[in-house]
Write a protein that binds this DNA or RNA. Structure first.
Lengths: 114, 114
DNA sequence: TTTTTATTCAACCAATCGGTTGACAACCGC
DNA sequence: GCGGTTGTCAACCGATTGGTTGAATAAAAA
């Protein structure tokens, strides 16, 4: 796997368990155990997922007694949002394409047919 | 790998080569060969990358003579943008927390308070 | 028809992924 | 200290990834 920040972020998010963990953390920081509870897999597996998220910079950990509290870090999400910016105009353009297609249909023009 | 649409999209984007292909396609549709040219890997490898993007719904292919023209499909990117929406408030409230708080204080606005 | 161009397919490879289990470390309460 | 709780580490496993090469397909060009 590529190790550049954007690739790490995308890869970290390409797993439903990790996105669920993130969603949970959006409501506030929690311990690893609580993060693991909703998932039917071993604690070690969740611990690995958390490490992936941490490596991507999506979460930070704070040690308190025997607990490790995780909290969401917005930085990489912000970067991801910045990446999407370059494409944001595009789905407006695609809508225009659809409009054009429908207009063509009404005119009996079929150059856009498959 | 998970096969839900969002996971497919994130996974497809977790590779610099595939993001480069997408960036190229943002400027207009092209053949596989032209998409492959800038990358120092075999055409077959690029063909595989393109298939990953296609499976994620990020591109569509159109056959014309011996060429396969690829064009960007915005749908999954739009969905991804929608996913980020849930977190967008976070870097406003988190990263710029202090700035926002101070600015609010100066304006006497307290809508960002807990 | 033969050759060239464009692309995919199939088989293979090493590396990585997502999960398991068991051992270990750190800390709390008794 | 001892036992329970919390979490990580290490080793292992099968499946998947990202690349390779060579053969196969399909259409254009000669």
């Amino acid at each position: 796997m590529a190790t550049d920040p954007l690739s790490l972020t995308f890869a970290a998010l390409a797993d439903p368990t990790r996105r669920a963990i993130l969603a949970r953390l959006a409501q506030g920081q929690t311990s690893v155990g609580e993060l693991a509870a909703p998932h039917q897999m071993s604690l070690a597996a969740v611990s690995k997922h958390i490490k992936v998220l941490e490596t991507a910079g999506l979460i930070a950990r704070e040690k308190d007694a025997q607990y490790r509290y995780c909290k969401l870090q917005a930085g990489p999400l912000k970067d991801l949002d910045g990446w999407i910016d370059a494409y944001r105009g595009l789905w407006r353009d695609n809508l225009d394409q659809l409009d054009a297609y429908l207009a063509d249909m009404q005119r009996g023009d079929d150059t856009n047919k498959q």
